[in-house]
Design a protein around this nucleic acid. Structure first.
Lengths: 206, 206
DNA sequence: ATCGGCAGGTTTACAGTGTAAAGTTTACAC
DNA sequence: GTGTAAACTTTACACTGTAAACCTGCCGAT
Protein backbone atom coordinates (compact mmCIF):
# COMPACT_ATOMS: atom_id res chain seq x y z
CA UNK A 1 0.00 0.00 0.00
CA UNK A 2 2.68 2.46 1.01
CA UNK A 3 4.90 1.27 -1.79
CA UNK A 4 2.05 1.79 -4.22
CA UNK A 5 1.78 5.33 -2.94
CA UNK A 6 5.50 5.74 -3.62
CA UNK A 7 5.03 4.57 -7.15
CA UNK A 8 2.25 7.02 -7.72
CA UNK A 9 4.34 9.76 -6.23
CA UNK A 10 6.47 9.64 -9.33
CA UNK A 11 9.63 7.87 -8.25
CA UNK A 12 8.69 4.48 -9.57
CA UNK A 13 12.27 3.76 -10.57
CA UNK A 14 13.44 4.18 -7.00
CA UNK A 15 10.62 1.97 -5.72
CA UNK A 16 11.48 -0.75 -8.24
CA UNK A 17 15.11 -0.74 -7.14
CA UNK A 18 14.18 -0.86 -3.46
CA UNK A 19 11.76 -3.74 -3.88
CA UNK A 20 14.17 -5.64 -6.13
CA UNK A 21 16.87 -5.35 -3.50
CA UNK A 22 14.50 -6.43 -0.77
CA UNK A 23 13.38 -9.43 -2.80
CA UNK A 24 16.98 -10.30 -3.61
CA UNK A 25 18.17 -10.14 -0.02
CA UNK A 26 15.10 -11.54 1.69
CA UNK A 27 13.85 -14.14 -0.74
CA UNK A 28 16.86 -14.86 -2.93
CA UNK A 29 17.65 -14.27 -6.55
CA UNK A 30 15.08 -16.76 -7.79
CA UNK A 31 12.37 -14.42 -6.52
CA UNK A 32 13.60 -11.46 -8.51
CA UNK A 33 11.33 -11.79 -11.50
CA UNK A 34 9.76 -8.90 -13.32
CA UNK A 35 6.31 -9.99 -12.23
CA UNK A 36 7.20 -10.42 -8.58
CA UNK A 37 9.02 -7.11 -8.43
CA UNK A 38 6.05 -5.46 -10.11
CA UNK A 39 3.62 -7.04 -7.67
CA UNK A 40 5.71 -5.92 -4.71
CA UNK A 41 5.91 -2.40 -6.05
CA UNK A 42 2.33 -2.16 -7.15
CA UNK A 43 2.66 -1.81 -10.90
CA UNK A 44 2.73 -4.02 -13.96
CA UNK A 45 5.67 -6.12 -15.03
CA UNK A 46 5.99 -4.36 -18.33
CA UNK A 47 6.04 -0.90 -16.86
CA UNK A 48 9.38 -1.77 -15.31
CA UNK A 49 10.64 -1.63 -18.89
CA UNK A 50 9.92 2.07 -18.94
CA UNK A 51 12.67 2.55 -16.36
CA UNK A 52 15.05 -0.30 -17.17
CA UNK A 53 15.90 -1.58 -20.59
CA UNK A 54 15.45 -5.17 -19.46
CA UNK A 55 15.95 -7.43 -16.50
CA UNK A 56 19.73 -7.35 -16.85
CA UNK A 57 19.77 -3.56 -16.64
CA UNK A 58 17.80 -3.81 -13.42
CA UNK A 59 20.27 -6.30 -11.99
CA UNK A 60 23.16 -4.12 -13.16
CA UNK A 61 21.74 -1.23 -11.16
CA UNK A 62 21.66 -3.45 -8.10
CA UNK A 63 25.26 -4.47 -8.75
CA UNK A 64 26.25 -0.83 -8.76
CA UNK A 65 24.59 -0.33 -5.38
CA UNK A 66 26.47 -3.33 -4.07
CA UNK A 67 29.78 -1.93 -5.31
CA UNK A 68 29.10 1.30 -3.45
CA UNK A 69 28.32 -0.60 -0.28
CA UNK A 70 31.54 -2.60 -0.59
CA UNK A 71 33.49 0.57 -1.19
CA UNK A 72 32.28 2.08 2.06
CA UNK A 73 33.30 -1.03 3.96
CA UNK A 74 36.76 -1.12 2.38
CA UNK A 75 37.34 2.60 2.85
CA UNK A 76 36.71 2.22 6.53
CA UNK A 77 39.12 -0.71 6.79
CA UNK A 78 41.84 1.07 4.84
CA UNK A 79 42.31 3.78 7.46
CA UNK A 80 45.88 4.96 7.13
CA UNK A 81 46.59 5.16 10.84
CA UNK A 82 47.09 1.44 11.36
CA UNK A 83 50.40 -0.05 10.19
CA UNK A 84 50.44 -1.81 6.85
CA UNK A 85 50.25 -5.52 7.73
CA UNK A 86 47.29 -5.05 10.10
CA UNK A 87 45.58 -2.70 7.72
CA UNK A 88 46.05 -5.15 4.84
CA UNK A 89 44.75 -7.99 6.93
CA UNK A 90 41.80 -5.88 8.02
CA UNK A 91 40.90 -5.06 4.43
CA UNK A 92 41.02 -8.71 3.44
CA UNK A 93 38.80 -9.59 6.33
CA UNK A 94 36.44 -6.74 5.49
CA UNK A 95 36.10 -8.02 1.94
CA UNK A 96 35.49 -11.56 3.11
CA UNK A 97 33.02 -10.44 5.76
CA UNK A 98 31.15 -8.43 3.19
CA UNK A 99 30.89 -11.49 0.98
CA UNK A 100 29.77 -13.70 3.84
CA UNK A 101 27.22 -11.27 5.21
CA UNK A 102 25.77 -10.24 1.84
CA UNK A 103 25.69 -13.51 -0.01
CA UNK A 104 23.00 -12.62 -2.53
CA UNK A 105 24.49 -9.21 -3.17
CA UNK A 106 27.93 -10.69 -3.61
CA UNK A 107 26.69 -13.31 -6.03
CA UNK A 108 25.13 -10.88 -8.45
CA UNK A 109 28.22 -8.67 -8.15
CA UNK A 110 30.94 -11.21 -8.87
CA UNK A 111 29.52 -14.65 -9.34
CA UNK A 112 27.03 -14.06 -12.09
CA UNK A 113 28.57 -15.17 -15.34
CA UNK A 114 27.66 -14.49 -18.94
CA UNK A 115 26.08 -17.94 -18.73
CA UNK A 116 23.02 -16.46 -17.10
CA UNK A 117 23.30 -12.74 -17.75
CA UNK A 118 24.41 -10.36 -20.45
CA UNK A 119 27.90 -9.15 -19.60
CA UNK A 120 28.19 -6.31 -17.14
CA UNK A 121 28.78 -3.29 -19.37
CA UNK A 122 32.40 -2.20 -19.49
CA UNK A 123 31.67 1.46 -18.79
CA UNK A 124 30.21 0.51 -15.45
CA UNK A 125 33.39 -1.08 -14.15
CA UNK A 126 34.58 2.21 -12.70
CA UNK A 127 33.09 1.49 -9.31
CA UNK A 128 34.41 -2.05 -9.29
CA UNK A 129 37.90 -0.78 -10.12
CA UNK A 130 37.79 1.78 -7.33
CA UNK A 131 37.59 -1.08 -4.86
CA UNK A 132 40.59 -2.81 -6.36
CA UNK A 133 42.60 0.39 -6.19
CA UNK A 134 42.28 0.44 -2.42
CA UNK A 135 44.06 -2.90 -2.35
CA UNK A 136 46.66 -1.72 -4.85
CA UNK A 137 47.45 1.28 -2.63
CA UNK A 138 48.30 -0.76 0.42
CA UNK A 139 50.33 -3.19 -1.68
CA UNK A 140 52.26 -0.27 -3.11
CA UNK A 141 52.91 1.05 0.38
CA UNK A 142 54.20 -2.34 1.51
CA UNK A 143 56.37 -3.31 -1.44
CA UNK A 144 56.86 -0.20 -3.51
CA UNK A 145 56.88 -0.43 -7.26
CA UNK A 146 59.72 -1.99 -9.12
CA UNK A 147 60.39 -4.08 -12.19
CA UNK A 148 59.41 -7.20 -10.31
CA UNK A 149 56.24 -6.02 -8.65
CA UNK A 150 53.12 -4.41 -10.07
CA UNK A 151 50.64 -3.37 -7.35
CA UNK A 152 47.68 -3.29 -9.72
CA UNK A 153 48.39 -6.81 -10.88
CA UNK A 154 49.01 -7.83 -7.29
CA UNK A 155 45.62 -6.50 -6.27
CA UNK A 156 43.96 -8.57 -8.96
CA UNK A 157 45.74 -11.70 -7.78
CA UNK A 158 44.72 -10.94 -4.21
CA UNK A 159 41.17 -10.23 -5.24
CA UNK A 160 40.93 -13.45 -7.21
CA UNK A 161 42.15 -15.40 -4.20
CA UNK A 162 39.63 -13.85 -1.82
CA UNK A 163 36.93 -14.25 -4.42
CA UNK A 164 37.74 -17.92 -4.88
CA UNK A 165 37.33 -18.54 -1.18
CA UNK A 166 33.95 -16.78 -1.06
CA UNK A 167 32.82 -18.50 -4.20
CA UNK A 168 33.48 -21.97 -2.80
CA UNK A 169 31.93 -21.13 0.55
CA UNK A 170 28.81 -19.80 -1.13
CA UNK A 171 28.54 -22.86 -3.34
CA UNK A 172 29.00 -24.95 -0.19
CA UNK A 173 31.81 -26.88 -1.76
CA UNK A 174 34.27 -26.65 1.12
CA UNK A 175 34.78 -29.86 3.08
CA UNK A 176 32.61 -29.70 6.17
CA UNK A 177 35.50 -31.02 8.29
CA UNK A 178 36.85 -27.50 8.18
CA UNK A 179 35.02 -24.73 9.88
CA UNK A 180 34.45 -21.70 7.70
CA UNK A 181 36.51 -19.58 10.08
CA UNK A 182 39.48 -21.92 9.87
CA UNK A 183 39.32 -21.76 6.10
CA UNK A 184 39.00 -17.98 6.15
CA UNK A 185 42.00 -17.66 8.48
CA UNK A 186 44.10 -19.85 6.23
CA UNK A 187 43.02 -17.83 3.23
CA UNK A 188 44.12 -14.61 4.88
CA UNK A 189 47.39 -16.20 5.99
CA UNK A 190 48.07 -17.19 2.40
CA UNK A 191 47.12 -13.73 1.20
CA UNK A 192 49.68 -12.22 3.58
CA UNK A 193 52.55 -13.54 1.52
CA UNK A 194 51.68 -11.05 -1.23
CA UNK A 195 53.03 -8.42 1.16
CA UNK A 196 56.54 -9.81 1.16
CA UNK A 197 58.85 -10.07 -1.81
CA UNK A 198 59.71 -13.73 -2.23
CA UNK A 199 62.03 -15.30 -4.76
CA UNK A 200 59.28 -17.22 -6.50
CA UNK A 201 56.05 -15.64 -5.40
CA UNK A 202 55.88 -12.08 -6.64
CA UNK A 203 53.59 -11.22 -9.50
CA UNK A 204 55.79 -9.72 -12.16
CA UNK A 205 54.71 -7.80 -15.17
CA UNK A 206 55.86 -8.92 -18.63
CA UNK B 1 18.61 -40.16 -37.50
CA UNK B 2 21.54 -42.11 -36.09
CA UNK B 3 20.91 -40.69 -32.64
CA UNK B 4 17.28 -41.66 -32.93
CA UNK B 5 18.44 -45.13 -33.80
CA UNK B 6 20.59 -45.07 -30.67
CA UNK B 7 17.62 -44.10 -28.61
CA UNK B 8 15.58 -46.94 -30.03
CA UNK B 9 18.46 -49.29 -29.42
CA UNK B 10 17.77 -49.01 -25.76
CA UNK B 11 20.54 -46.80 -24.46
CA UNK B 12 18.51 -43.64 -24.40
CA UNK B 13 20.14 -42.52 -21.18
CA UNK B 14 23.57 -42.61 -22.81
CA UNK B 15 22.23 -40.69 -25.83
CA UNK B 16 20.69 -38.04 -23.59
CA UNK B 17 23.97 -37.53 -21.77
CA UNK B 18 25.93 -37.33 -25.02
CA UNK B 19 23.61 -34.81 -26.60
CA UNK B 20 23.44 -32.75 -23.41
CA UNK B 21 27.21 -32.55 -23.29
CA UNK B 22 27.37 -31.63 -26.96
CA UNK B 23 24.77 -28.90 -26.50
CA UNK B 24 26.57 -27.63 -23.41
CA UNK B 25 29.97 -27.45 -25.06
CA UNK B 26 28.90 -26.37 -28.53
CA UNK B 27 25.99 -24.06 -27.84
CA UNK B 28 26.40 -23.09 -24.20
CA UNK B 29 24.44 -23.77 -21.09
CA UNK B 30 21.47 -21.69 -22.22
CA UNK B 31 20.80 -24.28 -24.91
CA UNK B 32 20.62 -27.16 -22.49
CA UNK B 33 16.87 -27.30 -22.04
CA UNK B 34 14.88 -30.46 -21.72
CA UNK B 35 13.11 -29.77 -24.99
CA UNK B 36 16.28 -29.05 -26.94
CA UNK B 37 18.05 -32.08 -25.57
CA UNK B 38 15.02 -34.18 -26.42
CA UNK B 39 14.87 -32.79 -29.95
CA UNK B 40 18.57 -33.49 -30.46
CA UNK B 41 18.20 -37.02 -29.18
CA UNK B 42 14.97 -37.76 -30.98
CA UNK B 43 12.58 -38.27 -28.11
CA UNK B 44 10.15 -36.27 -26.03
CA UNK B 45 11.16 -33.85 -23.30
CA UNK B 46 9.24 -35.70 -20.66
CA UNK B 47 10.76 -39.05 -21.46
CA UNK B 48 14.07 -37.69 -20.20
CA UNK B 49 12.41 -37.85 -16.79
CA UNK B 50 12.32 -41.61 -17.08
CA UNK B 51 16.11 -41.62 -16.90
CA UNK B 52 16.84 -38.54 -14.78
CA UNK B 53 14.85 -37.35 -11.83
CA UNK B 54 14.88 -33.79 -13.12
CA UNK B 55 17.06 -31.33 -14.98
CA UNK B 56 19.42 -30.94 -12.05
CA UNK B 57 20.05 -34.67 -11.93
CA UNK B 58 20.97 -34.50 -15.62
CA UNK B 59 23.37 -31.65 -14.97
CA UNK B 60 24.82 -33.51 -11.99
CA UNK B 61 25.60 -36.43 -14.25
CA UNK B 62 27.46 -34.06 -16.58
CA UNK B 63 29.33 -32.64 -13.60
CA UNK B 64 30.46 -36.13 -12.70
CA UNK B 65 31.79 -36.65 -16.22
CA UNK B 66 33.65 -33.37 -15.93
CA UNK B 67 35.22 -34.42 -12.65
CA UNK B 68 36.46 -37.61 -14.28
CA UNK B 69 37.96 -35.64 -17.14
CA UNK B 70 39.71 -33.29 -14.73
CA UNK B 71 41.00 -36.23 -12.75
CA UNK B 72 42.67 -37.70 -15.83
CA UNK B 73 44.34 -34.39 -16.58
CA UNK B 74 45.60 -33.97 -13.01
CA UNK B 75 46.78 -37.55 -12.75
CA UNK B 76 48.93 -37.06 -15.81
CA UNK B 77 50.41 -33.86 -14.40
CA UNK B 78 51.12 -35.40 -11.01
CA UNK B 79 53.61 -37.89 -12.39
CA UNK B 80 56.01 -38.66 -9.56
CA UNK B 81 59.15 -38.57 -11.66
CA UNK B 82 59.43 -34.79 -11.83
CA UNK B 83 60.69 -32.99 -8.72
CA UNK B 84 58.13 -31.41 -6.45
CA UNK B 85 58.18 -27.71 -7.39
CA UNK B 86 57.88 -28.41 -11.11
CA UNK B 87 55.28 -31.08 -10.55
CA UNK B 88 53.27 -28.74 -8.34
CA UNK B 89 53.50 -25.97 -10.87
CA UNK B 90 52.49 -28.38 -13.62
CA UNK B 91 49.42 -29.46 -11.69
CA UNK B 92 48.36 -25.88 -11.10
CA UNK B 93 48.77 -25.15 -14.75
CA UNK B 94 46.88 -28.29 -15.71
CA UNK B 95 43.97 -27.25 -13.52
CA UNK B 96 43.94 -23.75 -14.95
CA UNK B 97 44.27 -25.02 -18.51
CA UNK B 98 41.38 -27.37 -17.94
CA UNK B 99 39.26 -24.47 -16.72
CA UNK B 100 40.26 -22.29 -19.64
CA UNK B 101 39.76 -24.94 -22.28
CA UNK B 102 36.49 -26.29 -20.91
CA UNK B 103 34.70 -23.17 -19.82
CA UNK B 104 31.17 -24.54 -19.95
CA UNK B 105 32.18 -27.76 -18.26
CA UNK B 106 34.05 -25.88 -15.57
CA UNK B 107 31.15 -23.58 -14.90
CA UNK B 108 28.64 -26.30 -14.21
CA UNK B 109 31.27 -28.10 -12.11
CA UNK B 110 32.34 -25.28 -9.81
CA UNK B 111 30.58 -22.07 -10.65
CA UNK B 112 26.98 -23.09 -10.49
CA UNK B 113 25.60 -22.00 -7.16
CA UNK B 114 22.47 -22.98 -5.27
CA UNK B 115 21.14 -19.71 -6.71
CA UNK B 116 20.36 -21.45 -9.96
CA UNK B 117 20.57 -25.14 -9.15
CA UNK B 118 19.72 -27.53 -6.36
CA UNK B 119 22.87 -28.27 -4.42
CA UNK B 120 25.17 -30.93 -5.77
CA UNK B 121 24.36 -33.95 -3.63
CA UNK B 122 26.90 -34.58 -0.91
CA UNK B 123 27.34 -38.25 -1.70
CA UNK B 124 28.60 -37.34 -5.14
CA UNK B 125 31.52 -35.29 -3.89
CA UNK B 126 33.77 -38.33 -3.86
CA UNK B 127 35.08 -37.61 -7.32
CA UNK B 128 35.57 -33.95 -6.57
CA UNK B 129 37.52 -34.84 -3.44
CA UNK B 130 39.76 -37.24 -5.35
CA UNK B 131 41.03 -34.29 -7.34
CA UNK B 132 41.82 -32.29 -4.23
CA UNK B 133 43.71 -35.22 -2.77
CA UNK B 134 46.17 -35.11 -5.63
CA UNK B 135 47.05 -31.58 -4.58
CA UNK B 136 47.22 -32.57 -0.93
CA UNK B 137 49.69 -35.32 -1.78
CA UNK B 138 52.20 -33.05 -3.42
CA UNK B 139 51.83 -30.50 -0.63
CA UNK B 140 52.50 -33.24 1.89
CA UNK B 141 55.57 -34.28 -0.01
CA UNK B 142 56.87 -30.72 -0.06
CA UNK B 143 56.16 -29.65 3.48
CA UNK B 144 55.41 -32.77 5.44
CA UNK B 145 52.73 -32.76 8.08
CA UNK B 146 53.21 -30.98 11.35
CA UNK B 147 51.26 -28.98 13.87
CA UNK B 148 51.52 -25.89 11.70
CA UNK B 149 50.63 -27.35 8.34
CA UNK B 150 47.66 -29.39 7.18
CA UNK B 151 48.00 -30.60 3.57
CA UNK B 152 44.27 -31.15 3.14
CA UNK B 153 43.51 -27.63 4.27
CA UNK B 154 46.37 -26.36 2.14
CA UNK B 155 44.90 -28.06 -0.91
CA UNK B 156 41.58 -26.31 -0.31
CA UNK B 157 43.29 -22.94 -0.04
CA UNK B 158 45.20 -23.62 -3.24
CA UNK B 159 42.09 -24.82 -4.99
CA UNK B 160 40.14 -21.75 -3.95
CA UNK B 161 42.89 -19.51 -5.28
CA UNK B 162 43.02 -21.23 -8.66
CA UNK B 163 39.25 -21.30 -8.77
CA UNK B 164 39.03 -17.58 -8.07
CA UNK B 165 41.32 -16.83 -10.99
CA UNK B 166 39.28 -18.98 -13.37
CA UNK B 167 36.05 -17.56 -12.06
CA UNK B 168 37.09 -13.98 -12.75
CA UNK B 169 38.49 -14.83 -16.17
CA UNK B 170 35.29 -16.61 -17.13
CA UNK B 171 33.16 -13.72 -15.94
CA UNK B 172 35.47 -11.42 -17.91
CA UNK B 173 36.07 -9.25 -14.93
CA UNK B 174 39.86 -9.05 -15.19
CA UNK B 175 41.22 -5.72 -16.37
CA UNK B 176 41.93 -5.97 -20.07
CA UNK B 177 45.28 -4.22 -19.56
CA UNK B 178 46.56 -7.55 -18.34
CA UNK B 179 46.83 -10.43 -20.70
CA UNK B 180 45.25 -13.60 -19.41
CA UNK B 181 48.61 -15.33 -19.52
CA UNK B 182 50.25 -12.66 -17.38
CA UNK B 183 47.49 -13.01 -14.83
CA UNK B 184 47.74 -16.79 -14.91
CA UNK B 185 51.51 -16.64 -14.40
CA UNK B 186 51.12 -14.33 -11.43
CA UNK B 187 48.47 -16.61 -10.00
CA UNK B 188 50.81 -19.59 -10.21
CA UNK B 189 53.67 -17.55 -8.75
CA UNK B 190 51.47 -16.68 -5.78
CA UNK B 191 50.37 -20.29 -5.45
CA UNK B 192 54.02 -21.36 -5.23
CA UNK B 193 54.38 -19.81 -1.80
CA UNK B 194 52.13 -22.54 -0.38
CA UNK B 195 55.08 -24.87 -0.95
CA UNK B 196 57.35 -23.08 1.46
CA UNK B 197 56.81 -22.67 5.16
CA UNK B 198 56.67 -18.97 5.91
CA UNK B 199 56.26 -17.26 9.27
CA UNK B 200 52.89 -15.76 8.41
CA UNK B 201 51.63 -17.66 5.40
CA UNK B 202 51.06 -21.27 6.34
CA UNK B 203 47.55 -22.56 6.78
CA UNK B 204 47.35 -23.93 10.30
CA UNK B 205 44.70 -26.14 11.71
CA UNK B 206 42.91 -25.08 14.94
C1' DA C 1 -2.20 -69.19 -26.86
C1' DT C 2 -3.54 -65.80 -23.69
C1' DC C 3 -3.50 -62.81 -20.09
C1' DG C 4 -1.19 -59.52 -16.49
C1' DG C 5 1.93 -56.45 -15.48
C1' DC C 6 5.36 -53.37 -16.37
C1' DA C 7 9.14 -50.58 -18.30
C1' DG C 8 9.68 -47.16 -21.67
C1' DG C 9 7.60 -43.83 -24.40
C1' DT C 10 4.12 -39.99 -25.85
C1' DT C 11 0.35 -36.53 -25.31
C1' DT C 12 -1.48 -33.00 -23.06
C1' DA C 13 -1.49 -29.56 -19.80
C1' DC C 14 -0.07 -26.09 -16.30
C1' DA C 15 2.22 -22.49 -14.12
C1' DG C 16 5.97 -19.77 -14.55
C1' DT C 17 9.41 -16.85 -17.23
C1' DG C 18 11.15 -12.41 -20.19
C1' DT C 19 9.45 -9.11 -23.18
C1' DA C 20 7.30 -6.98 -27.61
C1' DA C 21 3.19 -4.36 -29.35
C1' DA C 22 -0.72 -1.89 -28.91
C1' DG C 23 -4.02 0.56 -26.15
C1' DT C 24 -5.12 3.64 -22.31
C1' DT C 25 -4.67 7.14 -18.89
C1' DT C 26 -2.56 11.30 -16.95
C1' DA C 27 -0.26 15.78 -17.01
C1' DC C 28 1.02 19.73 -18.93
C1' DA C 29 1.73 23.54 -22.75
C1' DC C 30 -0.56 26.57 -25.69
C1' DG D 1 -10.25 23.21 -24.82
C1' DT D 2 -7.19 20.84 -27.59
C1' DG D 3 -2.53 18.59 -28.95
C1' DT D 4 1.09 16.08 -27.40
C1' DA D 5 4.12 13.39 -24.83
C1' DA D 6 5.19 10.50 -21.05
C1' DA D 7 3.77 6.93 -17.88
C1' DC D 8 1.33 2.98 -17.23
C1' DT D 9 -1.73 -1.26 -18.44
C1' DT D 10 -3.52 -4.96 -21.38
C1' DT D 11 -2.78 -8.50 -24.16
C1' DA D 12 -0.09 -11.68 -26.37
C1' DC D 13 3.85 -14.74 -27.66
C1' DA D 14 7.37 -17.95 -27.29
C1' DC D 15 9.82 -20.27 -24.10
C1' DT D 16 10.87 -22.83 -19.73
C1' DG D 17 10.57 -27.22 -16.23
C1' DT D 18 7.67 -30.85 -15.09
C1' DA D 19 3.27 -33.44 -13.40
C1' DA D 20 -0.54 -36.61 -14.89
C1' DA D 21 -2.62 -39.48 -17.89
C1' DC D 22 -2.34 -42.41 -21.56
C1' DC D 23 -0.47 -45.81 -24.90
C1' DT D 24 2.42 -49.79 -26.48
C1' DG D 25 5.24 -53.59 -27.04
C1' DC D 26 7.66 -57.20 -24.38
C1' DC D 27 8.12 -61.14 -20.94
C1' DG D 28 6.88 -64.52 -17.82
C1' DA D 29 3.00 -67.30 -15.71
C1' DT D 30 -1.14 -69.73 -16.40
Amino acid sequence: MSTIAMARNGDLRRAILDESRRLLLEEGYASVSMRKVAAAVGCTATSIYLHFENKDALIHALIEEGMDLLHEVLLEASCCETPVPERYKGMCRAFLDFGLANREYYEIMFQMTPMEMRRYPTEKYRKARRNLELFAEVLLEARGTSTDFDPALGSIVLWSQLHGALSLIHAQRVDKRYDTEVFIDSTIAHAMCLLQPASTSSPTHS
